[in-house]
Protein backbone atom coordinates (compact mmCIF):
# COMPACT_ATOMS: atom_id res chain seq x y z
CA UNK A 1 0.00 0.00 0.00
CA UNK A 2 1.03 3.54 -0.65
CA UNK A 3 -0.61 6.56 0.88
CA UNK A 4 -3.76 7.89 -0.70
CA UNK A 5 -3.57 11.21 -2.50
CA UNK A 6 -6.26 13.85 -2.60
CA UNK A 7 -8.06 14.43 -5.86
CA UNK A 8 -10.75 16.69 -7.19
CA UNK A 9 -12.44 16.80 -10.55
CA UNK A 10 -15.76 17.46 -12.17
CA UNK A 11 -17.83 14.45 -13.11
CA UNK A 12 -21.06 14.77 -15.09
CA UNK A 13 -21.24 18.40 -14.05
CA UNK A 14 -20.69 17.78 -10.34
CA UNK A 15 -17.60 18.81 -8.38
CA UNK A 16 -16.01 15.86 -6.69
CA UNK A 17 -13.41 15.73 -3.91
CA UNK A 18 -11.95 12.43 -2.79
CA UNK A 19 -8.80 10.47 -2.34
CA UNK A 20 -7.23 7.45 -3.97
CA UNK A 21 -4.14 5.32 -3.82
CA UNK A 22 -2.03 6.25 -6.89
CA UNK A 23 -2.36 2.81 -8.46
CA UNK A 24 -6.18 2.92 -8.53
CA UNK A 25 -7.39 3.05 -12.14
CA UNK A 26 -9.78 5.84 -13.02
CA UNK A 27 -12.45 3.39 -14.18
CA UNK A 28 -12.32 1.53 -10.85
CA UNK A 29 -12.62 4.82 -8.97
CA UNK A 30 -15.63 5.82 -11.07
CA UNK A 31 -17.33 2.46 -10.58
CA UNK A 32 -16.49 1.57 -7.00
CA UNK A 33 -16.07 4.92 -5.27
CA UNK A 34 -18.59 6.97 -7.21
CA UNK A 35 -21.03 4.13 -7.89
CA UNK A 36 -21.28 5.02 -11.58
CA UNK A 37 -21.25 1.54 -13.05
CA UNK A 38 -22.16 2.46 -16.62
CA UNK A 39 -18.48 2.52 -17.64
CA UNK A 40 -17.55 -1.11 -18.06
CA UNK A 41 -14.29 -2.94 -17.43
CA UNK A 42 -13.57 -5.36 -20.25
CA UNK A 43 -9.96 -5.99 -21.14
CA UNK A 44 -8.09 -3.56 -18.85
CA UNK A 45 -5.45 -2.98 -21.46
CA UNK A 46 -6.96 -0.47 -23.82
CA UNK A 47 -8.18 -2.80 -26.54
CA UNK A 48 -11.93 -3.29 -26.03
CA UNK A 49 -13.15 0.27 -25.49
CA UNK A 50 -15.89 -0.62 -22.96
CA UNK A 51 -14.44 1.84 -20.39
CA UNK A 52 -14.35 4.83 -22.79
CA UNK A 53 -15.26 8.12 -21.07
CA UNK A 54 -14.82 11.77 -22.01
CA UNK A 55 -11.89 13.58 -20.44
CA UNK A 56 -12.17 17.30 -21.15
CA UNK A 57 -14.47 16.35 -24.02
CA UNK A 58 -12.16 13.78 -25.61
CA UNK A 59 -12.84 10.04 -25.54
CA UNK A 60 -10.17 8.15 -23.60
CA UNK A 61 -9.75 4.75 -22.00
CA UNK A 62 -10.47 5.08 -18.29
CA UNK A 63 -8.61 1.80 -17.67
CA UNK A 64 -5.40 3.41 -18.95
CA UNK A 65 -5.35 6.30 -16.51
CA UNK A 66 -4.90 6.49 -12.79
CA UNK A 67 -7.64 8.26 -10.85
CA UNK A 68 -5.13 10.77 -9.50
CA UNK A 69 -4.39 11.82 -13.09
CA UNK A 70 -7.92 13.19 -13.42
CA UNK A 71 -7.13 16.00 -10.98
CA UNK A 72 -8.57 19.27 -12.20
CA UNK A 73 -10.14 17.68 -15.26
CA UNK A 74 -13.70 17.38 -16.47
CA UNK A 75 -15.10 13.86 -16.85
CA UNK A 76 -18.28 12.71 -18.53
CA UNK A 77 -19.56 9.16 -18.32
CA UNK A 78 -22.49 7.47 -20.03
CA UNK A 79 -24.67 8.43 -17.04
CA UNK A 80 -24.55 12.04 -18.28
CA UNK A 81 -26.23 11.24 -21.60
CA UNK A 82 -29.85 10.48 -20.80
CA UNK A 83 -32.30 8.63 -18.61
CA UNK A 84 -34.54 5.67 -19.52
CA UNK A 85 -37.41 8.16 -19.80
CA UNK A 86 -35.50 10.78 -21.78
CA UNK A 87 -32.75 9.13 -23.76
CA UNK A 88 -30.01 10.91 -25.66
CA UNK A 89 -30.63 10.99 -29.39
CA UNK A 90 -27.77 8.53 -29.93
CA UNK A 91 -29.23 6.15 -27.34
CA UNK A 92 -32.62 6.38 -29.06
CA UNK A 93 -30.98 5.53 -32.37
CA UNK A 94 -29.19 2.49 -30.88
CA UNK A 95 -32.56 1.39 -29.47
CA UNK A 96 -34.45 1.94 -32.72
CA UNK A 97 -31.84 0.32 -35.01
CA UNK A 98 -31.07 -2.64 -32.75
CA UNK A 99 -27.54 -1.36 -32.16
CA UNK A 100 -27.01 -3.60 -29.16
CA UNK A 101 -27.71 -7.05 -27.86
CA UNK A 102 -26.07 -7.70 -24.49
CA UNK A 103 -25.19 -4.01 -24.12
CA UNK A 104 -21.85 -4.46 -22.37
CA UNK A 105 -19.92 -2.53 -25.03
CA UNK A 106 -22.61 0.11 -25.61
CA UNK A 107 -21.48 2.78 -23.09
CA UNK A 108 -18.05 2.79 -24.71
CA UNK A 109 -19.53 3.13 -28.19
CA UNK A 110 -21.76 5.99 -27.05
CA UNK A 111 -18.95 7.92 -25.37
CA UNK A 112 -16.76 7.48 -28.46
CA UNK A 113 -19.54 8.66 -30.74
CA UNK A 114 -20.91 11.70 -28.90
CA UNK A 115 -17.89 13.92 -29.71
CA UNK A 116 -17.35 12.17 -33.05
CA UNK A 117 -20.79 13.11 -34.37
CA UNK A 118 -20.37 16.67 -33.13
CA UNK A 119 -17.19 16.92 -35.18
CA UNK A 120 -18.43 14.82 -38.14
CA UNK A 121 -22.16 15.43 -38.49
CA UNK A 122 -22.45 13.56 -41.78
CA UNK A 123 -20.12 10.55 -41.79
CA UNK A 124 -20.07 7.90 -44.52
CA UNK A 125 -20.40 4.24 -43.57
CA UNK A 126 -16.66 3.78 -44.11
CA UNK A 127 -15.87 6.73 -41.85
CA UNK A 128 -18.21 5.35 -39.20
CA UNK A 129 -16.47 1.97 -39.25
CA UNK A 130 -13.15 3.75 -38.89
CA UNK A 131 -14.48 5.84 -35.99
CA UNK A 132 -15.63 2.79 -34.05
CA UNK A 133 -12.50 0.74 -34.77
CA UNK A 134 -11.42 1.21 -31.16
CA UNK A 135 -14.56 -0.39 -29.71
CA UNK A 136 -15.20 -4.12 -29.75
CA UNK A 137 -18.69 -5.61 -29.87
CA UNK A 138 -18.98 -9.39 -29.64
CA UNK A 139 -22.74 -9.60 -30.29
CA UNK A 140 -23.96 -7.54 -33.18
CA UNK A 141 -21.43 -7.98 -35.95
CA UNK A 142 -21.45 -4.16 -36.05
CA UNK A 143 -23.94 -3.75 -38.91
CA UNK A 144 -26.77 -2.56 -36.67
CA UNK A 145 -24.38 -0.31 -34.78
CA UNK A 146 -23.42 1.34 -38.07
CA UNK A 147 -27.14 1.62 -38.93
CA UNK A 148 -27.78 3.26 -35.56
CA UNK A 149 -25.05 5.82 -36.13
CA UNK A 150 -26.36 6.64 -39.61
CA UNK A 151 -29.82 7.09 -38.08
CA UNK A 152 -28.46 9.29 -35.27
CA UNK A 153 -26.65 11.48 -37.77
CA UNK A 154 -29.83 11.85 -39.85
CA UNK A 155 -31.83 12.82 -36.76
CA UNK A 156 -29.17 15.28 -35.64
CA UNK A 157 -29.21 16.97 -39.03
CA UNK A 158 -33.01 16.98 -39.33
Amino acid sequence: MTDSLKLHFTINGQEHHGEAEPRLLLVDYIRHHLGLTGSHVGCEHGVCGACTILLDGQPVRSCLMFAVQANGREIRTVESLGTPEAMHLLQEAFHAAHGLQCGFCTPGFLMTLVPYLEEHPNPSEDEIRHAISGNICRCTGYQHIVDAIVLAAQKMNA
Binding site: G46, G49, Q58, P59, V60, R61, T112, G134
Partner: peptide, 9 residues
Protein backbone atom coordinates in the same frame (compact mmCIF):
# COMPACT_ATOMS: atom_id res chain seq x y z
CA UNK B 1 -1.19 4.55 -34.38
CA UNK B 2 -3.77 2.51 -32.46
CA UNK B 3 -7.25 4.05 -32.07
CA UNK B 4 -8.49 7.64 -31.66
CA UNK B 5 -9.12 7.08 -27.93
CA UNK B 6 -5.51 5.95 -27.50
CA UNK B 7 -4.12 8.85 -29.55
CA UNK B 8 -5.98 11.30 -27.31
CA UNK B 9 -3.62 10.28 -24.48
Amino acid sequence: VAHPQIRNR
